[in-house]
Every structure is written in C-alpha cells, then in structure tokens.
Computed example of a mutant assay.
Amino acid sequence: MMWKRVGMILAVFLLAACSNESEQPAPTLGADAKVAKAYLEEQGYDVVSYKGNRMSSFEKADLLELPTQSTWQVQMTPPDDYIGRDIRHENFIVRNHPLDEVAELGQTNVSVMMVDGEIIGGTSYPDSAEPLTGASYSLDGKTAEELHPDYMEWRSEWEAKYSE
C-alpha cells in the first residue's frame, strides 16, 4: 500500500517536471498582426511564423543613438511624427525575401512597425542560428547606404537636425 502511494507521488512530480519544460504557446495574431501579415504577403513574402510583438517609443535625442538611429535610417517615413509615440513591432519570419540567402537558415526576420493600426515602416535581418551584429536593413532588405546614395551628406543632415 505504501509503495503504491510513493509511486503515485513520484508520478505526479514527474508530470509536473515535464510540463514545466514545454514550450510557450505560439503567440496569436491580434488585429495589428493580421494587418501586418497581409501586408507582408502583398509584398510577395511567404510568412513562415509569427513571433509576437513588442512596443517601443523614442525621444528626439534617441535618433542619434543605437538602436533607434539604425532603425530609422532605413525607413522611408521620417521619424518626426512618431517622437514620443507608442510603436508596435509585429515580428514574423518570412521566406522569399532578399536577405534569405545571407545566413544559413534561408529565411528572414521582419518587424513591421505600426502606430494606431497603420503601418509606418519596418526592419529586417537574416534569420541565423548564430547571433548577428550590425545595422538594421529596411523591411525590403536595403541598407541605409542603398537608401541614401549620398550617405555621408544625408548623415550630416540627420545629425544636425536631431541634435538641435
């Protein structure tokens, strides 16, 4: 009788231990995520998975610091209207993106930036098993230098504007 009770207690502990190691449930797509996913599909990307979202905000001085500067220098929308506002980043892994071949996994992380349900831009970076460093790419995989052909001149104007 005692051994049966010990066995039951052991079984309960084993089940509890195993259940703690299960992965978090996959994040579900809210309204903004659905808009972002549809936008990515319209751009020709195959959405592999949804990685959830996060919120951010920045002040004018942050535009001279990383990572804020790295994010905004690859946007087609100027940051001025979004200073001090909450920005939602809807994060996905996609395929059929220009950065797919940069790293070994053959897919790309994209972050769609939204304010009040509207897409204002985004960033991308190769999906890699190894940690990556460097500046952000635009949502479609371009560097700041590709988006601003006179990069040094553009950079000087940016620094003058946001250091005032």
Rank of each mutant, 00 (worst) to 15 (best):
C18N: 10
D80N: 13
A103H: 07
C18F: 12
G117R: 10
L105K: 14
I83L: 06
S70W: 04
Q75P: 04
E65N: 15
I83N: 08
R88K: 15
V102M: 13
E41L: 01
V94F: 02
K34T: 07
L64Y: 06
E23Y: 06
S19T: 12
L63M: 09
D100Y: 04
Q73W: 13
P79C: 09
T108A: 10
Q107N: 13
P67N: 05
E65C: 12
G44M: 02
K37L: 02
T68D: 09
K51H: 10
Q75F: 06
S56K: 03
S70R: 02
P79S: 09
F58Y: 08
V35A: 10
I87M: 08
R54M: 07
E118K: 15
D32E: 15
H89S: 10
Y45R: 03
Q73F: 07
D116H: 11
Y39I: 00
T108L: 11
K51T: 05
G117A: 11
D62N: 12
P98S: 03
V115G: 05
S49Y: 09
D116P: 09
L64N: 08
L40P: 03
V102E: 15
G30L: 08
G44R: 04
Q43D: 07
V110N: 01
Q24A: 15
Y50E: 04
Y82S: 10
D81S: 14
E21R: 13
S57P: 00
G44Q: 01
E65Q: 15
D100C: 07
C18R: 11
G84V: 01
E90W: 01
M113I: 02
L40C: 04
A16L: 15
Q43C: 14
L15R: 05
N96T: 01
M114L: 13
A31N: 10
V74W: 06
M113A: 15
V115I: 09
N53H: 13
G30R: 10
D116C: 05
E21Y: 15
L64I: 02
L105V: 05
T68S: 14
P78Y: 08
